[in-house]
Design a protein around this nucleic acid. Structure first.
Lengths: 195, 195
DNA sequence: ACATTAACTGAACAATCGTTCAAATCCTAG
DNA sequence: CTAGGATTTGAACGATTGTTCAGTTAATGT
């Protein structure tokens, strides 16, 4: 029978994904070799192919796992009543979720062009799905008359870009806590949508 | 003596930079080979080295030229009187300038990690300089009491991220003109900074 | 017409790439 | 203790990488 306890594959598999995530984020997918990943894991390059079909799948799986977790975590949150409360929740959630996973976020935004056509379409669909979550909130707010934007789609893109931008400058241990940053950004989001 | 008229180097040089810009933007610096660039120019790979020291310099020169032009173009604009007018000008300028050069913008944001340490520092300094231009405007607006932000630096980063985000979705010939988009974004910027 | 030089070719260099696979090693079930 | 599957090694494959350079081509000033 197959080994149950102490199986190496249950240790090496996650290590491969973790090493790939870290190296892809630091140097870019195309600039990282399978041998670099293997060295980081402490294994020969050939062994990686027990855990991934090829390099492309390694990238795609990391991206899809990230997007799946993003959508699942947002959907699992308790939903508050009013559109404005929901918008605040989205802003705070987005910042916290993204600041907690800088490497995965970086890859999901920067390595889209290294995906095959099929894989790109799949990731892009998930991203659109996430954007729809915000757009639904903005539309509800618009219908309720509590926010004022001339174009819901543009406002969606503007808010997401603004929030995701935090990842480019925020550093742990800086002068502001995550919560303080989220509070300030929530104020700016509210202003941007005229609420 | 050296040839003066009809010099090929005055044609091939720009063609090399244009091809590199386009290919780097489409596939990423690390994924593009010197031979691909040469093929696009219609020349053998060895000939590229008459126009660039190496591949790294090619990337760096493209980035620095972009940042230099960005700073120079902004500085050359006539400066209006009030902070709010200056903020509006910045928002409209940023969107127009960036939408007009999607490839260069893409590279300048995505390929920073492929720069050597020295080159990275140089580009980063230029970026900081550009951010300072916006921050000065926001500080002036804050001093004049016409805008209301708890943190000028955060507002700077938020506004720039929001504006640059247009490049990720805007497509020529879409349902909105550049001017219409710029107008809507200017409204959102104004709201975000409480003006 | 000739000498000069810019512009480019085409081949070569060592290094590294992603991927495969037979053989070796490790660990557990029986 | 042993059989057998899980796990990994280590070498090898052809292809491609950035870069160099001696030699060829083409256009110029005199």
């Amino acid at each position: 029978m197959a080994r149950k306890t102490g199986s190496h594959s249950e240790i090496t598999g996650p290590k491969v994904r973790a090493a790939a995530l870290n190296l892809f984020a630091r140097h870019g997918f195309a600039a990282v070799s399978m041998r670099q990943i293997a060295r980081e894991v402490g294994v020969q390059a050939g062994a990686l192919y027990l855990y991934t079909k090829d390099k492309q799948s390694l990238l795609f799986d990391l991206m899809r796992a990230h997007m799946d977790e993003l959508l699942a975590t947002w959907s699992a949150r308790p939903q508050r009543a009013t559109p404005l409360e929901q918008l605040e929740d989205f802003a705070r959630f987005h910042i916290q979720f993204h600041l907690d996973r800088p490497d995965a976020v970086f890859i999901a935004y920067m390595e889209l062009r290294n995906l095959s056509d099929d894989n790109f379409a799949a990731i892009e669909a998930l991203r659109r799905q996430y954007e729809q979550e915000l757009e639904k909130v903005l539309e509800a707010g618009h219908a309720a008359g509590v926010i004022s934007v001339p174009d819901t789609r543009l406002a969606t893109m503007a808010v997401i870009a603004m929030l995701t931008g935090v990842n480019t400058w925020y550093r742990e241990g800086g002068r502001l806590s995550q919560e303080a940053v989220a509070g300030i950004y929530w104020d700016m989001v509210r202003g941007a949508v005229g609420a």
